[in-house]
Amino acid sequence: MSEKGTDRVKRGMAEMQKGGVIMDVVNAEQAKIAEAAGATAVMALERVPSDIRKEGGVARMADPRITEEVMNAVSIPVMAKARIGHITEARVLEAMGVDYIDESEVLTPADEEFHLLKNDYTVPFVCGCRNIGEAARRIGEGASMLRTKGEPGTGNIVEAVRHLRQVNAEVRNIVAMGEDELMTAARDLGASYEFLKEVKLLGRLPVVNFAAGGIATPADAALMMELGADGVFVGSGIFKSEQPERFARAIVEATAHYQDYVLIAKLSKDLGPAMKGMEMATIGAADRMQERSW
């Protein structure tokens, strides 16, 4: 008797990514560069977040041709992005055999009210969160992995730091609470009581939580690990830098050895310009991807 698509299998897949770097790629060539650099997985998408931001328009699931070519090009897991609430994009990606789906606020949401019921799928999902309430709601819907939302495509780490600190502070609060305080916390946080009980028992979130949304340098990646991320997603940071191969390798190494500061200094030397990046104050409320979904 064997069983597919169980929580253990879906969450376990994310456990195997820990300490690793998942890189955004838009074609097979980039996927090969990512794999050769030591990425633990690649994320196939149509445009990296900084291009989505620049070019505007509706951002959708990538052309299946691209995803297929990426899947054929590498032996590491391939993830792909579907729009929030877009049942059909998610089912198409599942049917194609992608290894993980990111129900992502980087793409234009298909549904502004409802997320996917991710429990219904065999393929596992990763979702973004800014606080423990969002984390609880996504896990409640069946997400098997979380990441901070940060602010994608900015090359600015400040929002990812804010979100990771927020989630971790809330986890610590829950752990320190008396059991009789959990129901009120559940009401205030928009998290289920059962979820908070589980967090209190485990002393951590029940799934892996990566950092994402603004990582542009090896030191950024190491910072997120220092703050307690289980691993990192790098979107525009690699292929928008001037030396993608070197950036990719340096970020992989800095993530694994995030407290070896002599090494990070060495890795960061002469890397050339990182992606240019954006100051948060220059991004209007309507252009903040993190505000998509609740």
Binding site: M1, E3, G5, V9, M13, E94, G97
Partner: peptide, 26 residues
């Protein structure tokens, strides 16, 4: 196979008297 084919199964292992719960991921 790929992740969608990942599975759990109970295994009979030489030297163990009860089945072992195994998680196979890619």
């Amino acid at each position: 196979g790929r992740q969608v084919d990942s599975f759990e199964a109970d295994l009979d292992i030489v030297g163990l008297d009860a089945p072992f719960p195994a998680v196979f991921i890619r």
